[in-house]
C-alpha cells in the first residue's frame, strides 16, 4: 500500500491507563479487557486519510512501568506525535503527567505533537479527574486534549486522526523538516508535491475533515 506520508507515533503514560487497548482499538477495532503488561515496546500500524491523502501511522506502544522508562525514552526522538494517556478513574495517573511531559519534552524533537488523552471515559461513575481539569492542564501546556474510551471506542479514531491532522498542518506550514527522518515523518512514493504556499487546498481539507471531531 502506498502512502503520501508516514508518521511515527508513540503512546506514553502510566501503567494500566489503557495504552495498549487504545492501540488495539485503533488498529484492530476490538477491545481486550484482559491484557498482559506491555514488555518494552510493541508495534502497530494503520492507514488513514487526511485531506484526501493516504497517511500511514506507525505506532509504538510503550510500557508504562518505571522499569522500562529508560528503554522507552529511546523512542521519543524519532516520533512525530505522542499520545500522553492518563486514566480518569485514577487521580495519580493524572498527577504524573508533569513528569511524563518533562521527559517527553526533554528527549523529543521540539515539534513533536503531543495529544493529552483521558482514557476510560466509559467509567464515569468512578471518575476521579474532572474533564475540566484535563482541559486546563492541556491549555496550560499547549496540548490537544480529548477524553476517550478504548472499551466503547469513543473518540479513539479521533484521537489518532486529530494528532495526524495537527502534524499534517505543521508540515503544510513548513514547521517540520520532512527530509529529516529523525522527525518521525517519511514521504511516500504516492506523494505528489503540492505547493504548501497554496493555503486553499490545505485549509479546505482541514475544515471538511474536522467535521468528525
Amino acid at each position: 500500500m502506498s502512502y503520501a506520508y508516514l508518521f511515527k507515533y508513540i503512546i506514553i503514560g502510566d501503567t494500566g491507563v489503557g495504552k495498549s487497548c487504545l492501540l488495539l482499538q485503533f488498529t484492530d477495532k476490538r477491545f481486550q479487557p484482559v491484557h498482559d503488561l506491555t514488555i518494552g515496546v510493541e508495534f502497530g500500524a494503520r492507514m488513514i486519510t487526511i485531506d484526501g491523502k493516504q497517511i500511514k501511522l506507525q505506532i509504538w506502544d510503550t510500557a508504562g512501568q518505571e522499569a522500562f522508562r529508560s528503554i522507552t525514552r529511546s523512542y521519543y526522538r524519532g516520533a512525530a506525535g505522542a499520545l500522553l494517556v492518563y486514566d480518569i478513574t485514577r487521580r495519580e495517573t493524572f498527577n504524573h503527567l508533569t513528569t511524563w511531559l518533562e521527559d517527553a519534552r526533554q528527549h523529543s524533537n521540539s515539534n513533536m505533537v503531543i495529544m493529552l488523552i483521558g482514557n476510560k471515559s466509559d467509567l464515569d461513575s468512578r471518575r476521579e479527574v474532572k474533564k475540566e481539569e484535563g482541559e486546563a492542564f492541556a491549555r496550560e501546556h499547549g496540548l490537544v486534549f480529548m477524553e476517550t474510551s478504548a472499551r466503547t471506542a469513543a473518540n479513539v479514531e479521533e484521537a489518532f486522526i486529530n494528532t495526524a491532522k495537527e502534524i499534517y498542518e505543521k508540515i503544510q506550514e513548513g514547521v517540520f523538516d520532512i527530509n529529516n527522518e529523525a522527525n518521525g515523518i517519511k514521504i511516500g512514493q504516492q506523494h505528489s508535491p503540492t505547493n504548501p504556499s497554496l493555503p486553499g487546498a490545505g485549509n479546505q481539507g482541514g475544515s471538511t475533515s474536522s467535521g468528525c471531531c
Binding site: G40, V41, W60, I71, G78
Partner: peptide, 15 residues
C-alpha cells in the same frame, strides 16, 4: 536483545 532490536528498527534500520 529484543529491546535493542526494536529500538534499532525504530531508528529506520530497515530503510
Amino acid at each position: 536483545n529484543a529491546n535493542i532490536q526494536k529500538i534499532v528498527a525504530f531508528e529506520n534500520a530497515f530503510d
